[in-house]
């Protein structure tokens, strides 16, 4: 199987997930628009997956430990 075929299969799997969950809200005429959005989002995720990071590269998330009034 070529890389392109693998990518297509992967895309179809992601699309199937969206349709399985929300197909009732997605008219057939909008399927191509949805497919393009899924393709773009997965392409963005793949771009980030290929970006070199180390174990020490932490995410920027805001969490502050909470302690209520005594």
């Amino acid at each position: 199987m070529t890389a392109e075929q693998q990518n297509d299969q992967g895309l179809e799997a992601w699309l199937a997930l969206v349709i399985a969950r929300y197909g009732d809200h997605i008219p057939a005429v909008e399927r191509e628009r949805v497919r393009e959005s899924v393709r773009g989002l997965r392409a963005a995720a793949d771009t980030l997956a290929a970006f070199p990071l180390t174990n020490a590269d932490e995410p920027d998330v805001l969490f502050r430990v909470y302690r209520g009034e005594d």
Partner: peptide, 27 residues
């Protein structure tokens, strides 16, 4: 029309994708 269907596609972004984006953002 786009707004009526595209939010459903956000489902394909995983927690790992999101955290990786936050890590790359720091760089």
């Amino acid at each position: 029309e786009a707004d009526r269907v595209l939010p459903y596609t956000y489902e394909v972004v995983t927690a790992r994708d999101y955290l990786r984006a936050l890590r790359v953002r720091r760089v």
